[in-house]
Amino acid sequence: MGIAKLTWLQIRVIVSLTLRETRMTFGTSHSGYLWAIVQPLVSITFLVFIFYLIGRQAPYGTSLALFFSTAVLTLEMHNKMSVSLMRAFTSNKALLTYPMIRETDTLFARTVLIGSTFVIINIILYGGLIGFGLADLPSNPEHIILAFLSALLFSFGLGTINAILYQRNQSWQHVEKVLARPLFFMSGVFYIPSHMPPEAVMVLKWNPVLHLVEWVREGYYANYTSQILDIPYVLSVGACLSMIGLFFERITRKSRV
């Protein structure tokens, strides 16, 4: 087959799989999709409510909702990706009946689905905040987009490795849960990482999700400067994890089927 034909086949497979995943994830009704959008909204509202109750100001800027959104959206997308990709191999065994579908295609399809869902969630949420006067327009939207794409790369890599480990040993799902739990506290959701004591920063700066959150904030706020954000670090972690993940997928393929 020529390159053009192969590319067309690949696109066809991923589009069909994405449609199928959409159907599997959200069911037939549109309300299923609505719930996916409502979920981060609820988390953010809850955080705002708690901070309001204890009478705290936004750690940065004037809007609590905006400050939380910049972190929660990134973190929730990462968590969704990590868990969804982890189960991509095991919940799609039936697809291996069709020779043109490789297990990696299900990883790509799930990434496309979650990525596009979160594009919509981002637009609705920031649009809503701006509409209600709770946020200004982002100062550097291109940085938010780049941070979003890098988040996808990082979560894809980690999710792929999760998928391989989970397939080898199902108890990996419990380990993953334990490992992912501290992310909520380590990703700067309700504080400014640069203002943390140096000992804390020493630990926090290893967390790629924190870098991604800082990147989004630098993109949104005009004067937010992060002492932690290291773009080459987060990109290379994402690229390395993806390559390691895909490499192990390839070498274990024969023994897996």
Partner: peptide, 23 residues
């Protein structure tokens, strides 16, 4: 061997899916 169908999807959805991947 009928393992290639997804039980949660309807007959129509399964048929359309397979038709699409075969172009």
């Amino acid at each position: 061997f009928v393992g290639g169908f997804n039980g949660l999807m309807t007959g129509i959805e399964n048929v359309r899916f397979v038709a699409r991947i075969y172009g």
